[in-house]
């Protein structure tokens, strides 16, 4: 079921194109990561979806929302650097934002209690936000974004500013939230995207250059190599490896033989079979999977 349809969205600032004619669809209870280098247009897209910017061209549609209805009711948004009223307490701010989203005071209070607990800042509920640390503000930011149970949660770089512990906790929280709502988040940390998202949108200079599930992208940009290390006599082993049918080429890198293959699975089978039969002096056998970074560089540069 489609939740969000973005059609030919474009955004220009003073003649400069930030987002160039992008289209994508988004299903219920999925988590999509928007990845791309700085300046790729991630924040612009998220702000436009949240209604803070007006699209220069194109349309954004949320399913089941009447055209005269306010889409903001169904969207929760956390900016990259959330700023709060420093004179309010965390509890007060949550109740305030809940009430703005049409919860009654009582509902807002109950929900705020639950969320403060959930994001792990319940102890600081009555502390002025001015005294919160960066990590606490980020958590409060997530809590205020989901106070009205939105269908779509938009997070702009939710973990980039956090320390490793905070990052882990927020990622776990996102994993949990995925069961209740769809999440669209941006990041330039590719492993984070890999961890929680079901699909990726790769963004470069305002264009979606690639999209799809992690598994699909891995397969498409498969660049795996096999690294072999021998006790001695590397050149003769290289010749033997190159003679194998499935191997397309090899090169030596710091005493390690890097083997490229047309089909990595078959190459592995062949190499191990020959090595066992001829009793090769193999020290190390390693299959190098393409990292997300490699894939990203490849997509961006192509």
């Amino acid at each position: 079921m489609t939740l969000l349809t973005v059609n030919n969205l474009a955004k220009t600032y003073d003649g400069k194109t930030a987002v160039n004619n992008i289209s994508f669809e988004f299903e219920y209870e999925k988590c999509i990561a928007l990845i791309g280098p700085n300046g790729a247009g991630k924040t612009t897209i998220l702000r436009t979806l949240a209604g803070l910017l007006k699209p220069s061209e194109g349309t954004i549609r949320i399913s089941d929302v009447a055209s005269n209805d306010d889409v903001r009711k169904y969207i929760g948004y956390l900016p990259q650097y959330p700023v709060f009223h420093p004179w309010m307490t965390g509890m007060e701010f949550l109740v305030y934002s809940g009430q703005l989203a049409f919860l009654s005071k009582k509902e807002a209070k109950n929900r705020a209690e639950v969320l403060l607990e959930k994001v792990g800042i319940a102890d600081a509920r009555n502390m002025r936000i001015g005294k919160y640390s960066g990590g606490m503000k980020q958590r409060l930011g997530i809590a205020q974004a989901i106070i009205h149970k939105p269908k779509l949660l938009i997070l702009d770089e939710p973990v980039s500013s956090l320390d490793p512990i905070g990052r882990r906790e927020v990622l776990t929280l996102m994993e949990e939230l995925k069961k209740e709502m769809s999440i669209l988040f941006s990041t330039h940390i590719l492993t984070d995207a890999d961890e929680v998202s079901d699909a990726l949108l790769l963004l470069h200079q305002g264009n979606i250059v690639e999209s799809g599930s992690m598994a699909m992208l891995r397969q498409k940009y498969q660049t795996s190599t096999i690294a072999l290390e021998f006790e001695s006599d590397l050149p003769s082993y290289q010749a033997k490896v190159n003679a194998l049918e499935s191997v397309s080429g090899s090169h030596v890198e710091r005493n390690v033989l890097q083997v490229n293959a047309t089909d990595i699975a078959i190459a592995r089978q062949e190499i191990l079979a020959v090595a066992a039969k001829e009793n090769w002096e193999l020290v190390n056998f390693k299959l190098n999977r393409a990292s997300l970074e490699d894939m990203f560089m490849k997509v961006v540069n192509s």
Partner: peptide, 11 residues
């Protein structure tokens, strides 16, 4: 930037 949090609510 506080208004970014306030005005994404249906205000």
């Amino acid at each position: 930037g506080v208004s970014e949090l306030i005005l994404v609510k249906p205000v």
